[in-house]
């Protein structure tokens, strides 16, 4: 058997820095090529010799082409090379889908946020990464480009397992396209062992509104199964309801009952289940509060009213 040898520096590979996306895609057709965006996930693996490759295609010269926001009525198309830091500013999306800035705030520390990219994180597909959870919730169409073709793949068909995706070696995620309800608010919250680290459990949810009534809702949770999961039937329970304590309690208990988390060295199943419930509760309050803050609903900010204090 061979020894596991953690290295200091990468083994040799080639480096390319194309100036156009087309060039980049052609280069990626070569054997063992990897796209390099921020390098936040890839280069450590190369340093440690956990991954071995023939070459990298550095995307820095094409980054500006993949930093765009196309906003349509019911849709938002986001270039893949926005950094976490850029996404943490809600102004980037013109105030639409503040979930992005909410989630970005939980990622790493300032140096990581300035460097890591949305597309890089989706390609790496760490099941505890904030973007993987957000993508699981929003289930966008991923725009995947190769020299041969461009295709669209819904996120739920893209993510095959922890760090396993349907992305071919020569394909690049160029954009994500999200369908957005007309009026929606969001919640994102997590518990990690240390600020900025991957979450033990994280929750993202969206609530679509029909005036002050819930028209539609989605909940996604990471850390309770091998990859983040959604809760379609529980989310359906929220439809046509008005925000209330009773509803929050109901959803919280339903989520606790529905999850079947693993126990591992970082946290046990019971605690993960408990966190799933608590975090859903907190995230629902965020989403409801946002709605009430916007003055769109008569529903008072529950959980913050005087009577709630103990």
């Amino acid at each position: 058997m061979h020894c596991e040898v953690f290295g200091l520096y990468p083994y040799p590979f080639d480096y390319f820095r194309p100036n156009t996306l087309e060039e980049a895609l052609v280069l990626a057709q070569g054997d063992g090529m990897k796209f390099l965006a921020g390098g936040q996930s890839l280069v450590p693996l190369l340093n440690l010799h956990v991954a071995e490759i023939k070459g990298v295609v550095d995307l820095q010269n094409v980054a500006s082409a993949l930093k765009f926001v196309q906003s349509q009525q019911d849709r938002l198309r986001l270039g893949s090379l926005w950094t976490h830091d850029e996404l943490s500013h809600s102004s980037l999306l013109g105030g639409r889908c503040p979930l992005f800035s909410q989630a970005a705030a939980f990622i790493g520390h300032p140096r990581i946020r300035r460097r890591g990219t949305l597309g890089g994180s989706i390609a790496h597909a760490d099941p505890l990464a904030e973007w993987i959870l957000v993508m699981t919730l929003l289930d966008p169409q991923l725009i995947l480009a190769s020299a041969k073709e461009e295709r669209q793949l819904p996120f739920h068909d893209y993510l095959l397992g922890p760090m396993m995706t349907a992305l071919s070696d020569d394909e690049l995620i160029t954009a994500v396209e999200i369908s957005l309800p007309e009026k929606a608010t969001y919640g994102f919250t997590e518990v990690s062992r240390r600020p900025g680290d991957y979450a033990l459990v994280a929750t993202a949810l969206s609530v679509g509104w029909d005036r002050d009534r819930i028209a539609q809702a989605d909940i996604a949770i990471s850390g309770v199964s091998d990859v983040p999961r959604t809760f379609p039937s529980i989310s359906r329970d929220m439809c046509q309801e008005y925000p209330s304590h009773g509803l929050v309690e109901h959803i919280k208990h339903a989520v606790e009952a529905a999850v079947d988390p693993p126990s591992d060295v970082l946290a046990g199943a019971s605690y993960r289940r408990h966190l799933a419930g608590i975090l859903v509760e907190k995230a629902l309050h965020q989403a409801f509060d946002e709605m009430s803050n916007a003055g769109e609903t008569a529903a008072k900010s529950i959980g913050k009213s005087e009577g709630e204090r103990t």
Binding site: G7, L8, Q40, V43, N47, V56, D58, Q60, R111
Partner: peptide
């Protein structure tokens, strides 16, 4: 070697970057 400890940080065009996870070719 993971870009995590900060001991290798240098300023690249004014931005602090972890040099251990930055390929030299990319800072041309």
């Amino acid at each position: 070697g993971e870009g995590a400890c900060g001991s290798c940080v240098v300023l690249v065009d004014g931005n602090p970057l972890a040099s251990c996870i930055t390929l030299c070719a990319s800072v041309d």
